[in-house]
Design a protein around this nucleic acid. Sequence first.
DNA 1: TAGTGGTCTAGACCACTTC
DNA 2: AAGTGGTCTAGACCACTAA
Lengths: 262, 262
Amino acid sequence: MAPKWRELADKLAERIRSGEYAPGQQLPHIRDLVEAGEGSKSTVHAAYKALEAEGLVTSSRGHGTVVRQQAPLKRLGIARYDKAKWRDGDEVAFIADRVASGRAYKRGEQTQSVSRVPAPAMVAAAHGLPEGAEVYARARLVKEGDQPTHTLTSYYRPEHVEGTRIVDPAPGPAGRGGGFRVLYDAGYDIDHMREELFARIPTTEEATLLQLAPGEWVVELHRTTYTADGTVVEFAIGIHAASRFAWAYDFKVPDSAQEAKQ
Amino acid sequence: MAPKWRELADKLAERIRSGEYAPGQQLPHIRDLVEAGEGSKSTVHAAYKALEAEGLVTSSRGHGTVVRQQAPLKRLGIARYDKAKWRDGDEVAFIADRVASGRAYKRGEQTQSVSRVPAPAMVAAAHGLPEGAEVYARARLVKEGDQPTHTLTSYYRPEHVEGTRIVDPAPGPAGRGGGFRVLYDAGYDIDHMREELFARIPTTEEATLLQLAPGEWVVELHRTTYTADGTVVEFAIGIHAASRFAWAYDFKVPDSAQEAKQ
DNA sequence: TAGTGGTCTAGACCACTTC
DNA sequence: AAGTGGTCTAGACCACTAA
């Protein structure tokens, strides 16, 4: 026998999924359900809290409890890094994504700050630097309208970017074409990348910054960008609201026996 | 001012992270903390429930509340599909992963069932079949010792696998070399793949099957496998406990302008 | 001011495990 | 039987929002 609060939560969840309670619509008030004999206030509240943790509703004092509308997944493929976009045109990679998905770019959807900092251990390892060596950190918070979707912090070696637009802490994308274009103009043509991703529980700062629903996880993405000779020119860490993104990768099936013959 | 239960949870979380409460160790009993003036039983319980949702502890009736030990992340790179492993040797891809990570393969760590079913919409789309067309589904539950880590269900077109070992519902990997080897022997040499992944809340069945901690998310992976001529020979859906895996991908930066010239 | 969700208490009782 | 976490209640009070 499942607990009473769990049964109530499941009943409401079922009605939400069936569309009986539509996105944006108010759920019954807690006190009404108490009145209706669904349990004490604590019990009904526990059910509502479970629904909130499951991402189905959001509650706020004074307002009530409303069914969340799920933003559609944003699909990220490696095509978002297409050189044609940032080298030949003047789109920034992440803006190109938006154009492709039919959303207009709005000013102010990205805030940026640049600073010179001692490299955290992971950054130092990626760049092959001693821990604590100084690097430039370019931190962005990207929004979709009012809603923050992810942070992205790029770390550069000073000798690669000193004197370029990247170091200029003006807001907005790092000039025409973004960071890759700046590196390109400085003689560092990016060639290949490695992305590593995993999901985890957000820190409280991340939960606040990204306005995460209670219980929502984040996906942390590590991107290492290389030139053709294997030099690391950028290491970036992104923190994404887990419910808003999907990633896709295409690759050849490796064959180490074949490579050995060549 | 944060709620009392939140403050208590944060205090305990801090002690866990600092190592004061080591993995496997018991946390103070709820009634003891009530005695110590940390609040009423409900309040202390709320704090413990939050810690459980955050994956820091597990509680069970009769036993108590102990600090969880986090299994280390298992890193999945595309090297796990290396043809040399399953074509020339007799390792199955997922077993090769374990060998690489120093874990021994134990019999019974994978359960398998094969059935002929109408294709779900997503599977039909991937295979280019009409919805409801029949396909073979090979479902596995993979464990690490006693702990389930992920499910993986492969869908094949009947004409590709009819009469092969794949259709034989015997337990264990699909014979020497696994599913890819069987396809290879049947004349379908796999060439490239597409993987798509996203995080979501588990269904209640998944939470039970994978023994997920309350609040833990899953990562759903869609793998489409092609031969050189673009034929889809396998579409697989994996459900992973989100806290246990990391994925890595290496790729060239695309350049559509360059490709157009070629 | 009235109405919303959120917190907290004290205590009863339940479910499960160990002795 | 004793001890653990989990559920539930009734009611008081708090924090926030809207009219």
